[in-house]
């Protein structure tokens, strides 16, 4: 049993792995060049949707299965988990896309007319049918990151502001910065916009299924909405393009024209770390365990992947589902 571990990277993965290790009695030091979770990490820009069933449309099966652990895990850490499900809608001319989405996913039911009005009255102004994924949830990602960090500090985790490679047992959770050790890792750019509008009220994440401009809108409360997210095969960070922002805003406007008068509060961009199959990996490479490749599923899959990584580190379960060995 490992007694002390240094975790490199205090983003979503590092914080979740630390939480799992501390609960197993391991002393944890987190090392990150930044003092606190913030705009430098891609989890800062996340939607915070815990939507394993919707993600199952394009993601591999483990995402749907393991993602179902996430809501309970976050709640157990004391994070506010809003369990009101999510809704999927299409524009009128794409109606058949909704049928296809229904065929390829589970955990939903079709809601129309009065039922939709009860769930989401402002959406029902403009849409007459939606798929309702009742068991999905969402969280505020920034609040969750800050909460997790605070909770770890209270539990005795040490935080070091440094980028230097540590000695001893290391769990590397640096995301895209670990490309120097993980040649298969690539960045997938995502762009997002935050709006504030007093004219629209939404209680749960809404997804717009669109053949070219897919969109999700996550309500953050107080009239604040997060619009996400593009997915571009590029490692560029920090620069949202006018085209992407325009597409996100146009899609939101099509979803409800009241968004046209919303205040633009924030525009953000970052690159998600991903492996070729877009699934996460727990990779043992010499003395280091790499936990990486969470792609667009940081908040959804980090709980399950952190549990696996902690299992590998403590030798509780040495070859879990996403385990890889790298002898290169």
């Amino acid at each position: 049993m490992t007694e002390a571990v240094t975790i490199r990277g205090a983003g979503i993965v590092g914080l979740c792995v630390a939480t799992e290790l501390i609960s197993r009695g391991v002393a944890v030091t987190l090392r990150d060049p930044a003092p606190s979770p913030g705009a430098h990490g891609c989890s800062w820009w996340a939607g915070g949707m815990l939507a394993p069933f919707c993600e199952g449309f394009t993601a591999e099966e483990p995402v749907m299965r393991l993602g179902q652990e996430a809501a309970d895990w976050w709640q157990a850490q004391g994070v506010e988990v809003i369990r009101r499900g999510s809704l999927m809608v299409t524009l009128e001319r794409d109606r058949r896309e909704l049928d296809q989405f229904a065929r390829r996913t589970t955990g939903h039911r079709l809601v129309t007319g009065a039922d939709l009005t009860v769930l989401e009255p402002h959406l029902a102004d403009r849409h007459d049918r939606a798929l309702y994924f009742a068991d999905e949830a969402h969280i505020d990602p920034r609040a969750a990151l800050l909460h997790l960090r605070k909770r770890l500090e209270d539990a005795g985790a040490r935080f070091e502001q440094s980028d230097a490679a540590p000695t001893g047992p290391v769990i590397d959770c640096r995301g895209l910065a670990a490309q120097d050790s993980l040649p298969d890792l690539r960045g997938v750019k995502g762009e997002m916009v935050v709006l504030r509008s007093a004219d629209v009220t939404l209680s749960r994440p809404i997804r717009l299924l669109h053949p070219r401009f897919p969109l999700y809108i996550v309500p953050r409360g107080d009239g604040v909405f997060m619009l996400g997210a593009t997915q571009i095969e590029s490692e560029e960070k920090g620069r949202a393009s006018a085209r992407s922002v325009m597409e996100l805003l146009s899609a939101a406007y099509a979803l409800h024209p009241a968004f046209g008068e919303a205040e633009v509060m924030e525009i953000g961009a970052d690159a998600r770390p991903a492996f070729p199959d877009n699934l996460p990996r727990v990779t043992r490479k010499g003395e280091t365990i790499h936990v990486n490749g969470l792609f667009r599923h940081g908040f959804l899959l980090s709980p399950a992947v952190a549990r696996m990584a902690a299992g590998v580190a403590t030798r509780e379960n040495e070859a879990p589902e996403f385990y890889h060995e790298d002898h290169g």
Partner: peptide, 16 residues
């Protein structure tokens, strides 16, 4: 067009 960004940011995908 969209992937290039600054300084060949799409290179990892193009390598694949």
């Amino acid at each position: 067009r969209r992937e290039a960004g600054d300084e060949r940011a799409g290179q990892a995908f193009w390598d694949m």
